[in-house]
Nucleic acid binder design. Structure first.
Lengths: 206, 206
DNA sequence: ATAAATAGTGAACCATCATTCAGTTCTTCT
DNA sequence: AGAAGAACTGAATGATGGTTCACTATTTAT
């Protein structure tokens, strides 16, 4: 059974999360979180050292949740290139389905301290893409390249391409077209399939 | 001759710009700008309605300056694909040569109101890339695609790939490799050169 | 030279919120 | 029940830093 302490923590985090998801970051002051959670302002500081810590945890858990979905997509059967496509589709679909939250997590202007956090939470996405690209390279599906730089560019590109649409109301047909454009863009960006080595060496795994 | 009024404006903007370029946005308070410009805090409000307006102008002029350099690169002779490559090289070289400023303009966490500005000032880059891509499409060099989405993804990708290096001290050899990686990445992302149309239609210009 | 207008000063002000803490209510244990 | 402690309250506090404004200095016009 969940301890009272943990229940309160979760309630506060949930309130913060709901506020972000409904109205964006700008609507979330500590008193607002308290009101939504049905507790006093002061109590929040019994559970979190500061607002920044609270948001750090909020961002972390939201990011982990998204990352898990993307990792699941990455585990689908298929070539590395195909799986990269699945991950992008998953990421983009989920972002477009929860626009306000995605906007807040990815791009909404926030106070300085929290912005730093946000930058940090892009790293897991970069790592996921970098790992898939490296796999593709080792399998001979993708030409050798600096997977860290390319992964960063992909994440930045996907987010930037989504930011405009994220802040506008949904337009049904366009969504699939947008995602398709982004997926093709990334697929192309990985370059063409390399010729098998003249030495006939088999692709290797580390 | 520059009017006294314009001279003062320019002096204040210059002071702000130098502070940003030397120490990043976090070092720039209104009193700090005043001190650097050798004027009083209050005077700044005779020339600018608010700090946000001052920075809006600062960002605008800095962005215009950069955009001009990129547009010059885009006017070099060459195919659309080649010229896109020149623009990326120009942009990246200049950013890496003035790291602190570039970091402040592109990614440093800033207060909410100013962040909104920053988002706006990415649009000119998107437009420049979009125009070049469209040219390439019309010339049959690039397969038809949504140039606005692709341009956004390129800009986002270039910036994201630079952000890490921008916040670290220069490492000489790496810089060219990094830029080369980004350029190839974008070149690939445009897709392969399309087959000439079966109907033998000539590429068209609007 | 004197007045009117304009430019400039900087200490005080204020708005915003995160944060605190003295006091109260609720639990738990004997 | 009663005491000890933990949980909780919310109005007051405080830090930051942008903004104002009553006042002084300088320039321009008569």
């Amino acid at each position: 059974m969940e301890s009272r302490l943990a229940e309160r923590r979760a309630r506060i985090l949930g309130a913060a999360r709901n506020l972000v998801a409904e109205a964006g970051y700008s609507a979330v002051s500590v008193p607002a979180i308290a009101k939504r959670a049905g507790v006093s302002t002061g109590l929040i500081y019994n559970y979190f050292d500061s607002k920044a810590v609270l948001f750090d945890e909020l961002f972390r858990s939201a990011t982990e949740h998204e990352i898990e979905a993307c990792e699941a997509a990455a585990r689908q059967p298929g070539s590395a290139r195909e799986r990269i496509g699945y991950v992008i589709e998953t990421f983009a679909h989920r972002a477009l389905a929860a626009r306000q939250l995605a906007w807040a997590l990815l791009a909404e202007p926030v106070e300085t301290e929290i912005e730093q956090d946000r930058l940090r939470f892009r790293a897991p996405y970069r790592r996921l893409f970098a790992a898939l690209i490296r796999e593709g390279i080792n399998d001979g599906e993708i030409a050798d390249q600096d997977e860290d730089v390319v992964a960063a560019a992909m994440v930045g590109g996907i987010v930037e391409a989504l930011i405009g649409p994220l802040s506008e109301p949904p337009e049904v047909g366009d969504e699939d077209r947008l995602i398709h454009t982004i997926v093709s863009y990334c697929a192309n960006a990985l370059g063409s399939i390399p010729e098998p080595s003249e030495l006939g060496m088999a692709p290797y795994h580390d």
